[in-house]
């Protein structure tokens, strides 16, 4: 179930993707330089499994773990599991960590980047559905949503309200139905990577990032995805933080309405 934004002038596909237009998804994936970006902070207990799962699912996919100033053995655990590790010298927050991964992917010439969180809530087995719209050139970014299609995800009432509120607001702003504005389960092509490598919000980035995609005329689709319970650690959004979260994101959305300067993307491949 894909919801593509209203039709616009077709974008030329980057060559390897276009050439492969007839090949099956698996063959096309195998021919694409691809990387998994895994932001992790103090996830020593889970990050190794996450890396191993991704590598088991697709051995040809490079896995880069962005260690966001962890104080436990996150980097060592990721490295032992076979990931490249980029260690930030101090904690930048999820936005800064993910952006580091996008920069890595962009600079090293990857054509496809997927993002999975280091706590293991995203299941690599769901990657094929996620990467398909991007590989086939239907979208610049695909986002796994817990609310598209059949879903048994039932968040607590307050969180549900918050998610609904932002989803409604963002849907209005981007004139396209968006159901899950907090999902960190994403697949991106180079256009989307370039945008986020250049400009990405710092705290709780996903809501603003969705609006940025729209402003830069990138195509977004949501694909159904289920997410697992956190294997360890606590959600980054605590009670007090959620107040800051709401205010910060609302302010950013409001100010964003009046922001005209659109980031020019040099890399319009």
């Amino acid at each position: 179930m894909l919801r593509s934004r209203r039709a616009r002038t077709p974008q030329p596909l980057s060559e390897p993707l276009a050439v492969a237009a007839t090949a099956s998804l698996a063959e096309r994936l195998a021919r694409t330089r691809r990387v998994a970006i895994v932001p992790a902070r103090n996830e020593a207990a889970c990050v190794g499994d996450v890396v191993r799962e991704i590598r088991a699912f697709d051995p040809g996919m490079e896995v880069v773990v962005v260690d966001d100033g962890s104080r436990d053995g996150t980097a060592a655990a990721a490295e032992a599991a076979g990931a490249r590790v980029v260690r930030l010298p101090f904690n930048l927050g999820i936005g800064g960590a993910v952006q580091t991964g996008f920069r890595y992917a962009l600079e090293r010439g990857f054509e496809l980047a997927v993002r999975l969180d280091g706590d293991g809530q995203h299941d690599p087995a769901q990657l094929p559905a996620l990467v398909r719209p991007v590989l086939e050139g239907e979208a610049d970014i695909a986002i796994g949503s817990r609310f598209v299609g059949e879903s048994d995800y039932r968040p607590p009432l307050v969180r549900w309200l918050g998610i609904r509120l932002f989803a409604g607001l963002v849907s209005l702003l981007v004139r396209q139905r968006v159901t899950d504005t907090t999902s960190g389960f994403q697949a991106l092509n180079r256009r989307a990577m370039a945008l986020f490598a250049h400009d990405y919000p710092h705290d709780y980035p996903e809501v603003e990032a969705t609006v940025m995609l729209f402003k830069h005329r990138l195509r977004l689709v949501e694909v159904p995805a289920s997410m697992r319970e956190r294997a360890a650690g606590a959600s980054s959004i605590t009670f007090w933080a959620s107040g800051y979260y709401m205010s910060k994101v609302l302010l950013a959305l409001f100010v964003g309405l009046f922001r005209r300067n659109v980031t020019r993307l040099e890399e319009d491949s």
Partner: peptide, 17 residues
Amino acid sequence: NAILAQRLALLEAELRE
């Protein structure tokens, strides 16, 4: 500061490689 931290981390990763 954030940009510097990111650049440093990416350069360190490359150097180690």
